[in-house]
Nucleic acid binder design. Structure first.
Lengths: 191, 191
DNA sequence: GTCTATAGTCCGATAGAC
DNA sequence: GTCTATCGGACTATAGAC
């Protein structure tokens, strides 16, 4: 376990978030981020493949944990419910509500970061669909459940962040699902 | 719209698609694209704000046309249906089925292009939600219908492209909507 | 049309932990 | 000595500025 000067990665993430808030993403250079973190630009790119990725380090870990939860879900007869419940039940406040809101605001303010956010969501959708299939859900149903479930949760997440984390994700999810049910034509569903 | 005179913009688009197929997106430089099109790199950036955008020139026009269709739809009491029908009824084969498939393949092969594709979809979702709201649909319902409708259509579009354009988009959409209905919990909607 | 800043890559060097 | 994290500098390409 290397002990000396540990924490470059976290210092880089902190410095990046601060600078993006101060000057905006486009007007912040990697050199400035590295300077504030006390490392060189070379070190920055050792940790993050590109400038955008510095804000999405946790996304991959979250995806893995969420997928595992889906694989561990006892009952998958309602795939869409599995997706929304898994997402709503997840503990998003790892680094704290404050950091979550700041990150959310910074991403929304920059088209470049929004692009990256969208592809992360897509990665998650693909991983979810795969997990559902491994649990025996038919391919088309798995794909659609994963995609739609994430869209439903996005509206929930936005409301939840806006409420400063005080709103109940499960209740918000129920409301969103009811809204969705009202939008889907009254075709008789078998399941 | 001078079809008889090949403008620099179209030559650039053709050259870019060819080169992306030959070498891949990352290994193709803007200089190479401009060379093949017989113009300078400066000219490339006069037409396209960045390297990725060369494949998405039509996206903005499509969005505007689709939004107009939504605004012109007589009945918007079933917002989700409005979205899926509008998308399924659109004529996507403007430049020909072959170009559509080639473009689809090139985008799928490059993470950078996939990112751009995703944000274009998001732009469309936002524009659709706005159009629905202007037609009197409540905000939350409009947003959800737009987002979910696009996800439904994505599955339809993928199947349609794979079928070489022979499958019927309307029939595929009906099948996808039935599948969606089977996924949504049997909460009875009022309408 | 030229000039320049920044993103991102590559190779090699250095220094501490084991 | 090995292993790993950091550093330095040169380099190409994108993108914007003049």
């Amino acid at each position: 376990m290397p002990r000396w000067e540990q924490g470059s990665e976290e210092r880089l993430r902190t410095a990046a978030l601060e600078l993006f808030e101060e000057r905006g993403f486009d007007d912040t250079s990697v050199v400035e981020i590295a300077d504030r973190a006390g490392v060189t630009t070379r070190t920055f790119f050792r940790y993050f493949p590109d400038k955008r990725e510095v804000l999405f380090a946790e996304s991959d870990r979250h995806r893995a944990a969420l997928v595992q939860q889906i694989l561990d879900t006892p009952d998958v007869t309602q795939p869409l419910r599995v997706i929304t419940s898994t997402l709503a039940g997840f503990d998003w406040t790892g680094p704290g509500m404050d950091l979550l809101r700041r990150r959310h605001a910074v991403i929304a303010a920059s088209p470049g970061l929004l692009e990256r956010d969208l592809i992360k969501r897509d990665d998650i959708a693909v991983a979810f669909a795969d997990a559902l299939q491994r649990r025996g859900v038919e391919a088309d149903a798995a794909r659609l459940a994963a995609r739609v479930g994430i869209q439903v949760f996005l509206t929930v997440y936005a409301q939840w962040v806006e409420s400063d984390g005080h709103a109940d994700p499960a209740a918000l999810t129920d409301a969103a699902m009811t809204l969705l049910a009202s939008l889907v034509p009254a075709t008789r569903a078998t399941g």
